[in-house]
Amino acid sequence: MTTELDDEEVIRQVIGELKKKFADRPPTEVEAAVREEFTALADRPVRDYLLILTERAAKERLKDAGTARIVSAPVSTGKVDDSHFPVRGRPTSPAGS
């Protein structure tokens, strides 16, 4: 039977691994994902694979959160308004056009 001490050890191990893999994320975000995923899995009857299942679930969650950040970032249309920058060979004032 797994004890609370064993549970904390599983959580610490997964947090340690995922902090390395997601070094660009705040440690508190990684820890929260691991603890929440562990809690969701901890009451299952078979606890033999808690470490790997917790790591996989938290990793997917952190990847999804990273994808959401990328998707929610402003998207460039590729058009740049450079009309106020002078260009060689082109007049800088509208009167000269």
Rank of each mutant, 00 (worst) to 15 (best):
D64G: 12
L53K: 07
T54V: 03
V87W: 08
K59P: 02
E37I: 01
P45T: 08
K63C: 06
K63I: 15
V71C: 04
L50M: 02
R35A: 05
Y49W: 07
R61A: 08
R90N: 11
E60V: 12
V46H: 11
P94V: 06
V71T: 10
L41H: 00
R47Y: 00
A65Y: 03
V30G: 01
K59C: 05
A57H: 08
V34P: 01
D82T: 10
A42V: 02
P45R: 12
Y49I: 01
L41C: 02
S76T: 09
F85L: 14
V46I: 14
R47M: 01
T92L: 08
P91H: 07
H84W: 12
G89Q: 06
P45K: 13
I52V: 15
A32V: 06
K79Y: 11
D48H: 06
S83A: 11
R69S: 09
E29Q: 14
Y49Q: 09
G66C: 06
E36C: 03
I70W: 09
S83E: 10
R56P: 00
D81Q: 09
T92G: 11
T54D: 01
A32G: 04
A40R: 12
R90G: 05
L53A: 05
V75N: 13
L50E: 00
E55S: 10
V75A: 14
F85C: 08
K63R: 15
R88V: 11
T92P: 14
I70C: 05
G66R: 10
V46W: 07
D43Q: 14
S83L: 10
P45G: 09
K63L: 14
P74T: 02
P74W: 04
S93G: 13
F38M: 01
P86G: 07
A42D: 02
L50P: 00
D82V: 06
L41A: 01
A57K: 14
A33C: 05
V75P: 14
V75G: 13
L50C: 01
